[in-house]
Amino acid sequence: MAGSYGSTLRYKNVERIKSIGKHTLLGASGEVSDFQEILRYLDELIIYDDMWDDGNSLGPKEVHNYLTRVMYNRRNKFDPLFNSLVVGGVKNGQKYLGMVGMIGTHYEDNHVATGFGNHLARPLMRAEWHEDMSFEEAVKLLEKCLLVLLYRDRSAINKFQIAKITEVGVTISEPYALKTFWGFLAFQNPTKGAEGSW
């Protein structure tokens, strides 16, 4: 939940997961103010859609597609929104998970990550993800990923939220900390295994 200003930990309580409409969760990394602007766009989008009052609502797929166009459009104006976004949700029994980058690159997959997560978390998820994971298994896997990221990403802090979205609704957890163990041999003696290094 950290928001950095260079290498200063400027904000320590930034909520990067927000719910969008009834069926969608949005997670963001990157510029905090740009993310807030994106949330304003989405608020407008959802409100205008609701005002039709026709019983239809935007699902995760629609929100994701909208965001891909917004991100790509802003890069075309050479005024990008400096974020990587993760969009997930469930609607009509269809689960959805997608991601959008700063310049509009987007894709869907069974697991996604932004930033350092692409390097450190996705290999773990590729190894352990399976189709019929329970919620508890998924949380366990995510916490394992977050712990690795906490150990290796110096701008991460030990304060996380995990959100769940189902057909029933959205729950975003209160901030909580993971139990850490810094006594690993490689932490105490980082140059072990790299002879000649100082």
Binding site: T68, Y72, R75, I103, T105, H106
Partner: peptide
Amino acid sequence: GFQGDMKA
């Protein structure tokens, strides 16, 4: 090439 442009 660039996926954003591909899709566009």
